[in-house]
Design a protein around this nucleic acid. Structure first.
Lengths: 144, 144
DNA sequence: TGACAAATAATAATTATTATTGTTTAATAA
DNA sequence: TTATTAAACAATAATAATTATTATTTGTCA
């Protein structure tokens, strides 16, 4: 990691009120250099190559700290347990990043571009995450 | 459940090649009458009131069967394990409902309405799930 | 440098989910 | 109907993901 990047990391820790430990720095650096959507185990495996004595719990703790302080995001805000949709009408979700509550919003009520910031129940929209669900090229082939 | 609904349930089982068992019917009926985004445990608790001897594994099995056969959906296609975003550019996700692979798509490449069906890598879009991330009214208050 | 709070490693515990196995039940055909 | 058979079930063991605990170590700041 360059001197510049180390400075960046230290500032980031200061802003978040976190100690700039060696483990934390290595996890940060490795995340920066990974791409895709790594799981805690995958991060752990990479960090272990540099710090063999690292604990998986430390990786988890730091991932959560990075996510809480906004340094990294998590892919899905509502992972963790299977949830069944009971609403059969076309709809999307209002997901509170703080308390994780999910509330439905009818598709027609969501005027994506226009209604930014004016959503039901006083919900304050901060960003949109669009999941396009469908079949990748491979799975299209295999379903023939 | 009305005679009409029972007929509906039996047809649905036939289409999916499933036996129309009592447990399955009760789980189906209860799901129909729940709202929100129930977890397997929540469904189990409700079913247990009608069939005290039901097993949690049976509830899991049937939820998966219902989801596979398209009778119900799951809220998030990529639950199960924490995933960290390493892509800091504004982007959305192409999620394959078959193999569960998640591929990023730049926000500017996703012309929501227009590009339907014409997505990178031959991805066949079937539906859009929009998560609006932000703060609910309560959490806005609490953050003052 | 030394004190103290924060972070860490090791590991136990918990939670969510899946697999296994012996028993029961629904679907189908005689 | 009743016998047959594959599917479904209950009970429970097993696994995977995550979190909590605790004793030890390390940064931070006086």
């Amino acid at each position: 990691m360059s001197a510049q990047e180390i400075k960046e990391f230290r500032e980031l820790c200061e802003r978040a009120g976190l100690a700039a430990t060696h483990q934390r720095q290595v996890i940060y650096e490795i995340l920066k250099n990974m791409h895709g959507h790594p799981s805690p185990e995958e991060v752990y495996a990479r960090v272990k190559r540099r710090i063999p004595a690292i604990s998986l719990a430390t990786v988890y703790k730091n991932l959560h700290l990075f996510i809480e302080s906004g340094v990294f995001r998590e892919v899905s805000l509502h992972h963790g347990t299977l949830r069944v949709e009971t609403n059969h009408k076309p709809h999307h979700h209002l997901v509170c990043t703080s308390c994780k509550t999910i509330v439905d919003i009818d598709a027609e009520d969501l005027g994506l571009a226009t209604q930014y910031g004016k959503l039901p129940g006083g919900f304050l929209a901060q960003r949109f995450a669009v999941d396009v669900l469908g079949l990748c090229a491979d799975c299209q082939k295999n379903s023939d």
